[in-house]
């Protein structure tokens, strides 16, 4: 995976005129005619107040939700038309989630948590645990592989979650308020880790409501009431592509 975009290669994620409407009593436009393209190797932050549609956008890209109108493509594949089984495959292979609340399996060890996505892809146990240990090394937890989430600090848990998001070598890493549940210092370290991932060529979509966090990305997509308010390039921080 490299930072430069070959002309023939599809973008990591492409949203084309995407709307998502919930009908709870009366229709609510969570997303309204949103189009945005995330190039391979790019680092994009999505900002907006609560209710602006940030989570909906993330769920659509992560194949957890389907749009009411428009198309969502992940790694060149239109995922809006897929069956639930195929969307599960895309979630497992093309998308890596990092959640605000970590969302680790409480009874599994760190390395088993990291290896979990590979379980559903039928990767043999020895191989997937080997890959998990490599990634835990990379996030600086090589000495915590046998610990359960309850035996880890918040920052360590989030690093396990990041390792899990990377284990399938996905087209895009989706980070939903990854620093929301940790103190500032730990948050800085996690953001530094994301910077490293970006530098290594990973595509990252970060959702946050903190300007300081969003500023670490290359681009900021500002959402309000389900619509794109503006897309800003960030001068400082990541190198422009």
């Amino acid at each position: 995976m490299t930072g430069d975009v070959a002309s023939g290669e599809p973008p990591a994620v492409e949203l084309d005129a995407v709307s998502r409407t919930y009908t709870r009593g009366e229709p609510v436009y969570a997303l309204d005619d949103v189009s945005v393209t995330l190039a391979r190797g790019s680092y994009t932050a999505v900002m907006g107040p609560s209710g602006s549609g940030k989570s909906t956008l993330l769920n659509l890209v992560g194949c957890l939700d389907t749009p009411t109108a428009g198309t969502v493509s992940v790694a060149g594949e239109d995922v809006t038309a897929l069956s639930s089984r195929q969307r599960a495959r895309v979630r497992g292979e093309e998308v890596g989630f990092v959640f605000q609340t970590f969302n680790l399996m409480p009874r599994l060890t760190a390395e088993e948590n990291v290896a979990l996505p590979l379980v559903f892809q039928g990767v043999a146990r020895a191989e997937r645990l080997g890959r998990a240990r490599d990634l835990l090394d990379r996030v600086g937890l090589g000495d915590r592989t046998d610990h359960r989430p309850s035996e880890l600090s918040g920052g360590q848990r989030q690093r396990v979650a990041i390792a899990r998001a990377l284990v399938t070598d996905p087209a895009i890493v989706l980070a939903d308020e990854p620093t929301g549940n940790v103190d500032t210092e730990t948050g800085d370290r996690i953001m530094a880790l994301l910077d490293d991932l970006h530098a290594a060529g990973n595509t990252i979509l970060l959702v946050t409501h903190q300007r300081a966090i969003a500023d670490r990305a290359e681009r900021i997509v500002r959402l309000r009431d389900g619509e794109i308010e503006g897309i800003d390039a960030v001068d400082t921080g990541g190198a422009a592509r």
Partner: peptide
């Protein structure tokens, strides 16, 4: 319920 959500987010199918 939450564990089921996690498993599905990392690629578990309904059948799994």
């Amino acid at each position: 319920t939450k564990e089921i959500g996690i498993m599905k987010a990392v690629g578990a199918t309904n059948r799994d």
